[in-house]
Design a protein around this nucleic acid. Structure first.
Lengths: 197, 197
DNA sequence: CTAGACGCCAACCGTTCGGTTGGCATAGGG
DNA sequence: CCCTATGCCAACCGAACGGTTGGCGTCTAG
């Protein structure tokens, strides 16, 4: 068997994503992750330092994949709505990410710290800023953060909707989420203080 | 010091509510709860059986207090909106309950099992059924569940709103939540299948 | 060809976990 | 006034926790 360190790292991150999403930070043991990955747990400490920092790496990794190449098409608030829709599709394709974000906001000290850290963030934020005429990068970053989290919450809400109304088609729930996220994003824009305006 | 068993139970339930709300089920140790309550941890097992069943007791206890005497005033969808507003006020007065619900839905097997178990539930559900012409008790119970959970999520949403717009007054955030919850409750009613209609 | 750096693992460390046990003190019925 | 049931606690249990260590095998620079 050839030696492949990047594959080892990847297997650990994948297993970490599964385990943390399923049982949270406190509920997941480092042993379980290493067992799931088929790798000795000492590798986690060699690669990532501590359980806590490993969680950050896992979340950042998954968020990078979630936001990679997800750009606004066009300008105006409709573009924001379509963008939220495609973001929704990615959440639906990989429910673990939504759970990871929920866990982080509940049990970790700094809420959504990883969201602000994600590498694709500033790029998407600048697009949002251009399309929506938000003055500076800091507030655009905040806006992006809020929209991401809104869609996350909306995803949970539709899961509930599905529970209440089992027959509802997934497509209908998707459009409901898009409109919901768009409306809330507009409201967020509205209440957000804009200096120099 | 006089012996007072109900006070011992109460102190454990209170401490359990604080600890579970702060760090979740897996993140809370039975020792920490007993230390917080100033009671030996063996009492938890004598009174409630296991850590898991103790969590159920804590959540049911807090939910009973949350929903106690919270009735619909009047009829129609506006009444539902006002009801959601008062529910929101109670959530705001005791944020622990919202966190407990969020924890349960994330990390425990059966989502919202305690919500369906709460003693005040059927009473409130019958009021909702009358006001909104929902056919049978089962679907009314589901409706109540969804509304409660919607408002719970709304709590997360406003926490985010506060983060994005720190200067926004709490009152403004409340009305936003009420409208939000009302609209979503109406949507839930809309997509919910109603037999015999 | 060889020396050392490095990926990797088995085994181990002290601590904390959920849960149990034995006994002391007290309350209340006879 | 005693006897039993019960509230309560200190101490304990095996297991599992996050984290570390020593050494084995394998790549690679010189």
């Amino acid at each position: 068997m050839p030696r492949d360190t990047t594959s080892t790292r990847e297997r650990l991150l994948d297993a970490g994503g599964r385990q943390f999403a399923a049982t949270g930070f406190a509920g997941t043991s480092v042993d379980a992750v290493s067992r799931d990955a088929g790798v000795n747990k000492e590798r986690i400490y060699a690669y990532f330092g501590s359980k806590r920092r490993f969680f950050d790496h896992v979340l950042t990794h998954r968020l990078d994949g979630l936001l990679d190449g997800l750009d606004l098409d066009g300008h105006g608030e409709d573009a924001l709505g379509r963008w939220a829709g495609r973001l929704w599709d990615r959440y639906a394709a990989d429910p673990d990410v939504a759970r990871l974000l929920a866990w982080e906001s509940l049990e970790l000290d700094e809420p959504a710290a990883a969201v602000q850290r994600v590498s694709s963030c500033s790029e998407v934020a600048s697009h949002l800023r251009d399309a929506l005429a938000v003055p500076d990068d800091a507030s655009a970053r905040q806006l992006l953060l809020s929209v991401v989290m809104l869609v996350t919450s909306a995803w949970t809400l539709t899961a509930l909707t599905a529970l209440v109304a089992p027959g509802t088609a997934a497509a209908a729930r998707r459009t409901a989420v898009v409109e919901h996220a768009t409306a809330l994003a507009r409201a967020t824009l509205l209440v957000s203080p804009r200096p120099g305006r």
